[in-house]
Write a protein that binds this DNA or RNA. Structure first.
Length: 574
RNA sequence: GCGCCCAUAGCUCAACCGGAUAGAGCAACGGCCUUCUAAGCCGUAGGUUGCAGGUUCAAGUCCUGCUGGGCGUACCA
């Protein structure tokens, strides 16, 4: 409802304003010889943590003190003296070891509220990506069973990462890579074929490495009923012939891909490209990669196998490319696949994977370097997430009825809901092992961080509804003229927090750390709830009321945008 | 053995390319609903940021070495 063209996307922020003032001061100090003329210091402005320190602070005097041959506080004095007059600042102080603290005029600080309201859904977006293409590969589960919690974490992190990249001006391709032809699929086929013949996992003749979950029976029954399954990337009708292994294989793969599609759809995650490992073989890309590696001179034969000297590129031991028996190891198609990504024009590629695959990072990168294809050394980027432990009543949950040996993503979505599942899985840094507490995620109470954030949004919607009902609809012009009335410390803190949103989005995208958005939203919600309880919005004073409505609307908008980045809904009432 | 990740309040976790007094929630205790949603707020208590060094004006954050945990260390993926 507030979506409008993003003409305010590049509205000048308070930090930009202060940075410009400091640049002027720096030039003056260079001109009078206080600072060396050739220095080009990076100016860093931080929002302060403590209101005593003003709204913003810079450590510039401390970082320059050495090159200026002065004490930090002394240099700070010079800098402050050289700062041009500005109507947006009502005070500047030097504090502590040499910080320069800026106290911003209330009305000027609050102008960001109107920027937010005008920008609507695009507030927080930027064009720092310049429209450059980025490919994000995530989930990439083989179609051998339902997705598990780990895949869920990958889906939540990967998809949020994509949304962050889109919000910062990148063209994002979401890609899902899987193997429909390897040993795991052989085991799947044998398992379904066994079920088709009525053999159960407890039977001695059950395949040695077969999949034992109940879903195998579902696949077998569907196959024998001659059903048609439609996955996002394939469609197969079962032949219902218990002896046709190839037909069983094709059906089982399609069936389980479809199951995964359902899981992902329920999770709000979709893909642009499904990439088959088998296509690399069919199109000769694996062979071509091998030949290129051999030509590059980084290979040798030993023990009947063909090796790649990955130790030339930082690996701790060389790796087999072609086995003694003739087949290729998994790492070779991985290299061919990433060469293909590069050749498709993706100069930035991010792979989101479980950390249990971290040993592939060095190998894939080494293989790409050995190709001598001009691919940069750190290519591709990796985001590796650590294990997820699921608990209920303080006890680890290991089993699911459908999958048998692990907790499925669908179990979680059905039990705690999509919003809570997504939020929980994305709210922690990927590098940290996390515990998914089912009781907490289910609880419809103040314990639950998801509701805490959503409630802030719903609460403000309720206030707006009240304003309409009372015949006091929001008056943007009156609000704009009354922004200087937002002088309560809590209101000032909220304004500062809101202004931080775009750079938080940009930083989260750049660092590939989607959890930063969740952290931000918790802080924003906390400040909003505190302000709500302390400062009444619906007051009789028209100017004050509308200024506060503007603040509330801006909070609501940022809450909405932030939750959207996480793929979590922003309910209007709860 | 080697490689990667982690270690912050009793518990689950934050901490913005190193910044000022390390922050939330839960659990404990005490308050706030005849006024905009109490899925909320306010207050009290809780810390040698695993240990030992180093770099820096400044270290939870960077470096080195330990300790403890997770993952990996296949001619499996």
């Amino acid at each position: 409802m507030w979506a409008r063209p993003s003409r305010h996307r590049n509205a000048r922020s308070m930090k930009d304003t202060i940075t410009a003032l400091l640049e002027t001061a720096l030039e003056a100090l260079k001109a009078d010889g206080t600072l060396p003329a050739e220095s080009h210091p990076a100016i860093r402005i931080d929002a302060t943590r403590d209101r005593e320190h003003g709204d913003y602070a810079t450590n510039l005097a401390m970082t320059l003190a050495k090159s200026a041959g002065m004490k930090p506080r002394e240099l700070a004095e010079r800098l402050v003296a050289a700062l041009p007059e500005s109507p947006v600042l009502h005070d500047i102080e030097i504090a502590g070891p040499g910080f320069i603290n800026f106290f911003v005029d209330t009305g000027s600080a609050a102008e960001v509220l109107m920027t937010i309201i005008d920008a609507g859904d695009s507030y927080g977006h930027s064009d720092v990506g310049g429209g450059s293409p980025v490919q994000v590969e995530f989930v990439s589960a083989n179609p051998t069973g339902p997705l598990h919690v780990g895949h869920g974490r990958g889906a939540a992190i990967g998809d949020t990462l994509c949304r962050l990249l889109e919000a910062t001006g990148h063209r994002v391709t979401r890609e899902f890579y899987y193997n429909d032809a390897g040993a795991q699929i052989d085991n799947l086929t044998l398992s379904v074929a066994a079920r088709v013949r009525g053999i159960e996992p407890s039977d001695p003749s059950w395949p040695a490495d077969g999949y034992r979950g109940d879903y195998i029976r579902d696949v077998a029954e569907s196959y024998m009923r001659g059903e048609t399954v439609v996955a996002d990337d394939r469609r197969v009708t079962a032949k219902a012939d218990p002896d046709d292994q190839q037909a069983i294989r094709e059906f089982a793969v399609a069936y389980l891909r479809h199951e995964q599609d359902l899981d992902l759809r329920a999770f709000g995650v979709g893909f642009d490209v499904y990439f088959l490992e088998s296509s690399l073989y069919q199109q000769g890309k694996v062979e071509a990669t091998v030949e290129r590696l051999i030509e590059g001179g980084h290979t040798y034969e030993a023990d009947g196998a063909l090796w790649l000297r990955t130790t030339d590129f930082g690996d701790d031991k060389d790796r087999v490319m072609r086995k003694r028996e003739g087949g290729y190891t998994y790492f070779l198609p991985d290299v061919a696949y990433h060469l293909d990504k590069w050749q498709r024009g993706f100069t930035t590629v991010i792979n989101e994977q479980g950390a249990d695959h971290h040993s592939t990072v060095t190998r894939v990168r080494a293989g790409l370097q050995a190709l001598d294809a001009g691919i940069p050394e750190g290519y591709p980027d990796y985001v590796l997430h650590q294990m997820v432990l699921v608990t209920r009543s303080g006890v680890e949950v290991k089993l699911s009825k459908r999958a048998g040996s692990y907790v499925t993503l669908r179990d979680l979505i059905e039990e705690v809901g999509r919003d809570a599942t997504r939020y929980f899985l994305v709210a922690r840094p990927a590098t940290s092992q996390m515990t998914f507490d089912i009781d907490l995620a289910r609880s419809q109470s103040n314990d639950n961080p998801v509701y805490y954030a959503q409630y802030a949004h719903a609460r403000m919607c309720s206030v707006m509804a009240r304003a309409e009902r009372d015949g006091h609809p929001f008056d943007a012009e009156l609000a704009r003229a009354s922004l200087d009335r937002l002088a309560e410390p809590r209101e000032r803190d909220l304004i500062t927090r809101l202004q931080l949103f775009p750079e938080t989005v940009a930083r989260a995208a750049l660092a590939r750390e989607p959890h930063q958005i969740a952290v931000y939203l918790q802080e924003l919600a906390a400040e909003f709830h505190g302000c709500y309880n302390a400062v009444r919005v619906m007051v009789d004073d028209d100017a004050l009321r509308n200024a506060r409505l503007a603040l509330g609307l801006a909070v609501r908008q940022v809450m909405h945008n932030g939750l959207g980045l996480l793929g979590v809904s922003a309910p209007e009432e709860m």
